[in-house]
Deep mutational scan, measured.
Amino acid sequence: MLSDEDFKAVFGMTRSAFANLPLWKQQNLKKEKGLF
């Protein structure tokens, strides 16, 4: 599990902003970052 700081560094957004994205968009971002 990423820390909040690492999460923001990897995804360029906060966890709450990420959580507001549609599920497909979350999955695409995870795949792009190799976290899926």
Score class of each variant (00 low, 15 high):
residue 1 M to T: 12
residue 1 M to K: 11
residue 1 M to R: 10
residue 1 M to L: 13
residue 1 M to V: 12
residue 1 M to E: 14
residue 1 M to S: 12
residue 1 M to D: 14
residue 2 L to D: 07
residue 2 L to V: 07
residue 2 L to N: 05
residue 2 L to S: 05
residue 3 S to T: 13
residue 3 S to F: 04
residue 3 S to A: 06
residue 3 S to E: 06
residue 4 D to K: 02
residue 4 D to T: 03
residue 4 D to P: 05
residue 4 D to Q: 04
residue 4 D to Y: 03
residue 5 E to V: 08
residue 5 E to Y: 08
residue 5 E to G: 06
residue 5 E to M: 08
residue 6 D to F: 08
residue 6 D to W: 15
residue 6 D to T: 07
residue 6 D to R: 08
residue 6 D to I: 09
residue 6 D to M: 11
residue 6 D to V: 08
residue 6 D to A: 13
residue 6 D to P: 02
residue 7 F to Y: 06
residue 8 K to Y: 15
residue 8 K to P: 03
residue 8 K to D: 07
residue 8 K to G: 04
residue 8 K to R: 10
residue 9 A to M: 12
residue 9 A to R: 15
residue 9 A to S: 11
residue 9 A to H: 11
residue 9 A to Q: 10
residue 9 A to W: 08
residue 9 A to T: 13
residue 10 V to Y: 09
residue 10 V to S: 04
residue 10 V to W: 11
residue 10 V to N: 04
residue 11 F to M: 08
residue 11 F to V: 03
residue 11 F to G: 00
residue 11 F to W: 06
residue 11 F to T: 02
residue 11 F to A: 01
residue 12 G to Y: 03
residue 12 G to P: 00
residue 12 G to T: 02
residue 12 G to D: 04
residue 12 G to I: 01
residue 12 G to N: 06
residue 13 M to F: 06
residue 13 M to E: 01
residue 13 M to W: 04
residue 13 M to D: 01
residue 14 T to I: 04
residue 14 T to F: 03
residue 14 T to M: 03
residue 14 T to Y: 04
residue 14 T to N: 06
residue 14 T to A: 06
residue 15 R to F: 05
residue 15 R to P: 07
residue 15 R to A: 06
residue 15 R to W: 06
residue 15 R to I: 06
residue 15 R to E: 03
residue 15 R to H: 04
residue 15 R to N: 02
residue 15 R to M: 07
residue 16 S to A: 14
residue 16 S to N: 10
residue 16 S to P: 05
residue 16 S to D: 12
residue 16 S to R: 12
residue 17 A to H: 06
residue 17 A to F: 06
residue 17 A to V: 09
residue 17 A to I: 05
residue 17 A to E: 15
residue 17 A to C: 13
residue 17 A to M: 10
residue 18 F to E: 00
residue 18 F to W: 05
residue 18 F to D: 01
residue 18 F to Q: 00
residue 18 F to Y: 05
residue 18 F to K: 00
residue 18 F to S: 00
residue 19 A to K: 11
residue 19 A to S: 10
residue 19 A to D: 12
residue 19 A to E: 14
residue 19 A to V: 07
residue 19 A to Q: 12
residue 20 N to L: 14
residue 20 N to P: 00
residue 20 N to T: 12
residue 21 L to V: 01
residue 21 L to F: 03
residue 21 L to I: 03
residue 21 L to Y: 03
residue 21 L to N: 01
residue 21 L to R: 00
residue 22 P to N: 02
residue 22 P to D: 04
residue 22 P to G: 02
residue 22 P to E: 05
residue 22 P to T: 03
residue 22 P to Y: 03
residue 22 P to H: 02
residue 23 L to Y: 13
residue 23 L to P: 11
residue 23 L to S: 07
residue 23 L to V: 11
residue 23 L to I: 11
residue 23 L to Q: 09
residue 23 L to H: 10
residue 23 L to F: 12
residue 24 W to V: 06
residue 24 W to R: 04
residue 24 W to S: 07
residue 24 W to G: 04
residue 24 W to Y: 07
residue 24 W to H: 06
residue 25 K to I: 13
residue 25 K to Q: 13
residue 25 K to L: 14
residue 25 K to W: 08
residue 25 K to T: 10
residue 25 K to D: 09
residue 25 K to G: 04
residue 26 Q to S: 02
residue 26 Q to Y: 01
residue 26 Q to I: 02
residue 26 Q to D: 00
residue 27 Q to D: 12
residue 27 Q to Y: 14
residue 27 Q to R: 14
residue 27 Q to T: 11
residue 27 Q to L: 14
residue 27 Q to F: 12
residue 27 Q to W: 11
residue 27 Q to G: 05
residue 27 Q to M: 13
residue 28 N to Y: 14
residue 28 N to H: 14
residue 28 N to E: 15
residue 28 N to A: 15
residue 28 N to Q: 15
residue 28 N to R: 15
residue 28 N to F: 14
residue 28 N to W: 15
residue 28 N to V: 14
residue 29 L to Q: 02
residue 29 L to H: 03
residue 29 L to F: 04
residue 29 L to I: 09
residue 29 L to V: 05
residue 29 L to R: 03
residue 30 K to V: 15
residue 30 K to T: 11
residue 30 K to M: 15
residue 30 K to P: 02
residue 30 K to N: 08
residue 30 K to I: 15
residue 30 K to R: 13
residue 30 K to E: 12
residue 30 K to Y: 15
residue 30 K to H: 08
residue 31 K to T: 10
residue 31 K to F: 12
residue 31 K to S: 09
residue 31 K to M: 11
residue 31 K to E: 10
residue 31 K to P: 03
residue 31 K to I: 13
residue 32 E to V: 07
residue 32 E to D: 09
residue 32 E to K: 09
residue 32 E to R: 10
residue 32 E to Q: 12
residue 33 K to Q: 07
residue 33 K to T: 08
residue 33 K to M: 11
residue 33 K to W: 05
residue 34 G to A: 07
residue 34 G to I: 08
residue 34 G to K: 06
residue 34 G to V: 07
residue 34 G to Q: 08
residue 34 G to Y: 08
residue 34 G to S: 08
residue 34 G to E: 09
residue 34 G to H: 09
residue 34 G to W: 08
residue 35 L to H: 10
residue 35 L to R: 08
residue 35 L to A: 08
residue 35 L to F: 15
residue 35 L to P: 07
residue 35 L to S: 09
residue 35 L to E: 09
residue 35 L to V: 13
residue 35 L to N: 10
residue 36 F to G: 12
residue 36 F to H: 11
residue 36 F to Q: 10
residue 36 F to I: 14
residue 36 F to E: 12
